[in-house]
Design a protein around this nucleic acid. Sequence first.
DNA 1: CTCCGGCGAG
DNA 2: CTCGCTGGAG
Length: 223
Amino acid sequence: MIWSHADRLRFDRIIETLEKNFSIEMGSSYTPFEVLISTILSQNTNRDNTTKAFERLKEQFKITPQELASADLEEIKRCIKPAGLYNAKARRIRKVARIIWEQYDGDLSKILNLPTSEARNMLLSLPGVGRKTADVVLSFCTNKGTFPVDTHINRIAKRLRWVEEKAGYEEIRHFFEDMVSEKQRKKVHLVLIEFGRKVCRAKNPHCKTCPIREDCQNENICQ
DNA sequence: CTCCGGCGAG
DNA sequence: CTCGCTGGAG
């Protein structure tokens, strides 16, 4: 897909409008390992359930490779139950903790400090870490962030005709990485997620009150 | 492609 | 009660 100057202006105008309408907290004093674990918990899971599971896990364990590597599997399952898919997630969390503890001296930054594409590939080799999770960790824990594509981002990019309907993960990721500078990516990502949750929802989107309805070229969504 | 799953909105 | 939410692995 070819992008004209006008397309870029429209993209920038939309992002600017969304930033004014959706406040986000960029706080988070999470360690990279905590980001990794909470992102694994968040897979296929809404935010409330993810937060509940992470807090419960944090009550029982220090969220460190050392502590989780030797944790009892059933105990992890019990803690993270609210996130769903807990059998698979518990196994993956402990396995990831063991790999980081044994192969990286318990220091995830040994992966994150590598050049971006190497770091991404190392993350992808961990159990339970796919493209979205790897990109979230890179985006939130380094300055050379990639752009994570979750279902909100996927849906919004297609509704706004930024990418074609059949575009896959990597195509959408590259679109955003082309359009958004590295230091803006985290913020733009969070703003789009908020927009996707509050307004441009999967079901019953609030098109009538959408702040960017003038710039939306999708006529088939509004009820 | 299917399976894994608690949770809350409808 | 049903069902959509929402990624990775086999």
